[in-house]
Amino acid sequence: MALINDGYLEFEELNKLQKLPSEERYAKGPVAVIECVQEIPCNPCEAACKFGAINVGNPITNLPTCSHDKCTGCGVCVSKCPGLAIFIVNKAYSETTATVGFPYEYMPTPSEGMAVSAVNRKGEVVCDAKVVKVVNPPAFDHTPVVTIEIPKEYADEVRSIKRL
């Protein structure tokens, strides 16, 4: 398993361990993709979602599940997840591009409009990207959520940017 041997998830592994949004759901706009796949005692994502889309329940070691139909893609859970393991993917951003939103706690914080290099789960640069949104209200407690625009075909792969 790449996850425990190399520290990153292969998409196939993720697909087996978490219920991912359907292509129909993706077509409707932004949605949370939860990449939490180990049973650790943790549940702040559940309380973070005011739409009741995320469920952990009892015991708290359950993996979180997301009802993608209730999820609005607001991104609050992204900032609340202590494992930084939730992403917002919008495959309906434009005809040819998608956006990926991710937590980014390094300095400097990217700014909107900036040209950046998008990386996959292994940290490899896969394509150029443009920062379209940076959200960092006090409620996010210093975990900015950065959204980048990328060619649509990389939407399942890109999960961050090369450190600035």
Partner: peptide, 23 residues
């Protein structure tokens, strides 16, 4: 060891940042 000892989410965030992990 042949495997990562800690939580996968912690490993995943440093991999995304480009840190090579040599098990």
């Amino acid at each position: 060891a042949p495997k990562i000892g800690g939580y996968a989410v912690h490993a995943a965030k440093i991999r995304r940042a480009g840190v090579p992990i040599y098990t």
